[in-house]
């Protein structure tokens, strides 16, 4: 795969009905709206290593039943790339999300977050209960339970004398071998067999952010502490669905279970799935999301 190929956008099963930019403090993010059903399903950005195309297996299906809103978070896709750790905290992403809702006339929505998208999804639900009807969190990257020990062996900042395995999750390695890091990282994310296409897509999106910017976005997420996140969870009042693959090599199942417990949500384990079941097992995840969204309508009625 050449970089050029990775960066030329592929054709889509469905194109947005409207799209646009919204700016906050001079930082623009790019949003897309699909369909006009009810309610709105808001597919949030995750870590800036990829952009909103990672929802491509959800958008065409969900947009036939609901209105779908998504956006490229700061740092990737068609959004701006501000510099500095402070630009990439969960508070900034949550504020961007709210700004996108305002710009698109979205009074309320069901938010769907992947991995660290959970951090801003829960924050939005906790701080703006009148805007969030429910939350779906997939493979949550939350500090409520310990992570995989192998991810904590090596320092992110020190220069290491190895690049084996998770030693590649290292500032110096990223700056010198970024493509190799992306290939390793997405290889871990897509632990299911026959994932070459999904890995290739993600590596392509990963090449749309500069390494220095990704380092900022990484360090910002490290700031999210346990106490502070517990407090957010305590304040979430809306119905919650947590979906987690039991072979997730990035964030262990215990994290998803703890989030479901902390928010009083329902916990669904997907057997044999890795960190992105919405990409590798989209039919199952789409049906779970649809059932959840429709159950909210029933309880409101």
């Amino acid at each position: 795969m050449s970089l050029l190929e990775a960066q030329r956008e592929q054709t889509r099963a469905r194109y947005p009905d409207s799209e646009g930019y919204v700016a906050r403090d001079g930082v623009r993010v790019f949003y897309e709206v699909y369909g006009d059903g009810e309610p709105t399903v808001f597919l949030l950005p995750t870590w800036s290593i990829i952009h909103s195309r990672h929802w491509k297996m959800q958008i065409p299906y969900l947009a036939r039943h609901f209105r779908v809103l998504t956006f490229d978070g700061r740092g990737n896709g068609k959004a701006d790339r501000p510099s500095g750790i402070g630009a990439y905290t969960e508070y900034e992403f949550a504020a961007d999300s709210l700004a996108v809702m305002d710009a698109t006339g979205t009074k309320t929505a069901v938010v769907v977050g992947l991995s660290c998208g959970t951090l801003w999804g829960t924050l939005l639900a906790a701080n703006h209960p009148d805007r969030v009807l429910g939350g779906v969190f997939i493979g949550p990257a939350v500090p409520l339970a310990p992570g995989h020990p192998e991810r904590y062996v090596h320092s992110f900042d020190d220069r290491l004398d190895t690049d084996d395995g998770w030693a590649k999750y290292n500032r110096h390695y990223w700056l010198e071998h970024y493509v190799e890091f992306l290939e390793y990282f997405f290889g871990k994310i897509f632990s299911e067999p026959h994932s070459t296409k999904q890995i290739e897509d993600c590596v392509g999106w990963g090449l749309e952010i500069a390494t220095e910017t990704l380092i900022d976005a990484h360090e910002a997420l490290e700031l999210c502490g346990l106490e502070q996140f517990r407090d957010v969870c305590d304040r979430v009042r809306c119905p919650v669905l947590v979906i987690h693959g039991d072979e997730d090599a990035l964030h262990p199942l215990a994290r998803g279970a703890a989030l479901a417990e902390a928010t009083g949500g329902r916990f669904v384990t997907l057997e044999g799935s890795g960190h992105c079941p919405h990409v590798r097992d989209p039919v199952k995840v789409n049906l779970l999301i649809r059932d959840f969204v429709e159950s909210l309508g029933r309880s409101a009625a």
């Binding site: 795969m1 067999p193 026959h194 070459t196 296409k197 290739e200």
Partner: peptide
């Protein structure tokens, strides 16, 4: 063709 691992298997 690329991405043929499933078909080969």
């Amino acid at each position: 063709e690329p991405h043929s691992t499933k078909h080969i298997e």
